[in-house]
Computed example of a mutant assay.
Amino acid sequence: MHLPGGRGAEHVRDTLLHAFVKDLSIYSAEYVAYVAAGLNDRPRKILGRRTPAGLFTELVATLE
């Protein structure tokens, strides 16, 4: 199934990831976590300019 804008979002994510790393196997777990945090702390238009990490925290808080 094709979702409008889906390919664009994937391309942006992949471009950001490739800006940080080319081959994950040569990096430590700490560095990979640093990259993941950097990507998850970037505001997203589709999330109303919230970050994925912030939205996740909000959603988890509703479960507690």
Rank of each mutant, 00 (worst) to 15 (best):
N40F: 12
S28K: 08
L3W: 05
L55A: 10
V32T: 09
R7L: 06
G48Y: 00
N40R: 14
P4M: 02
V60E: 06
L55C: 09
E30F: 08
K22F: 03
D23I: 02
P43F: 05
E58V: 01
T57V: 03
G6H: 07
L55Q: 08
Y31H: 10
S28R: 02
E10V: 04
P52C: 11
V12G: 06
I46P: 00
A9H: 04
S25P: 08
K22R: 11
G48E: 04
K45T: 03
Y27F: 13
Y34N: 06
Y31T: 02
S28I: 05
A29V: 09
G5L: 06
R44A: 03
T51H: 07
M1S: 15
L39Q: 03
Y34K: 09
A53S: 15
N40M: 13
R50M: 13
G38R: 08
P43W: 05
E10F: 11
L63E: 14
A33Y: 09
P4W: 01
R49V: 04
G54H: 03
P4K: 09
H2I: 08
L39Y: 04
S28P: 06
P52D: 09
G6F: 07
K45H: 03
G8S: 11
T62Q: 15
L17V: 06
L3A: 10
L59G: 05
E30L: 14
Y34R: 07
Y27K: 07
D23C: 06
V35H: 01
G54W: 03
V35T: 01
M1P: 14
V60Q: 09
N40H: 14
G38Q: 13
G8P: 06
F20P: 01
L16V: 02
S28A: 10
T57Q: 13
L17H: 07
E58Y: 04
R42T: 11
F20R: 04
F56P: 00
K45D: 00
Y31Q: 03
E64A: 13
L59W: 09
R49N: 15
R44F: 00
V32P: 07
P52M: 08
T51V: 11
F20W: 08
G48H: 01
G8Q: 09
G38Y: 03
G6A: 12
V35F: 07
V35N: 07
L3K: 09
L39T: 00
G8A: 12
M1V: 12
M1F: 12
S25D: 13
A19L: 10
A36R: 13
T51M: 11
G8W: 10
A53F: 13
L16C: 13
L16E: 12
K45M: 01
T15V: 09
A36L: 15
V60W: 00
T15H: 13
A53V: 11
R49D: 14
L24R: 10
I26P: 01
L55N: 04
L24M: 10
R49E: 10
Y34L: 02
F20C: 05
A29E: 14
A37Q: 14
E10Q: 12
V32A: 06
P4I: 03
F20I: 00
D23F: 05
L59M: 15
T57Y: 01
A53M: 15
P52A: 11
R42D: 04
